[in-house]
Amino acid sequence: MAEPEGSPPLPPLPRRARGARPAFHDEPAVDRLIAMFVALASEVSVLADRVATLEQLTGIGHEQVDAHVPDLAERTWRETRREALVARVFAALDDEPGTLAGGQRPEDYWETIAKIERGEV
């Protein structure tokens, strides 16, 4: 928004907290599915809000929406938006490879807690 001239752009922000995510189910797929379901519900809610906003602002009726066919430019824009949606909904699948690649173990978290509670840091 307010970029001072001559400064390089800022790098992206991290999207997940450091360390291994706790496991809540013996079958890890269950935790991933729950996270995906939350993300998916978020997207549905966003869409419902957007539809409500459009209806409020334009007063366009159902018939006009049903009859609309997007052209190539709009199809391209929609594909980009859907790709981003898929990345958000399935973000839970990115977690484990990231942890493995970073060499982080669940016990690292408890070693840190122990140090803080013992007053070593």
Binding site: A2, P4, L10, F24, V30, I34, A35, V38
Partner: peptide, 30 residues
Amino acid sequence: YRFYLSARRASQEAIWAAVIPPAEQLGRME
């Protein structure tokens, strides 16, 4: 309870997932 914990953790992550992109869009602030 296990399902609750898992969903609760996901709800916490949903907060950060929602607020990080707009913060990233700020760029360098004057």
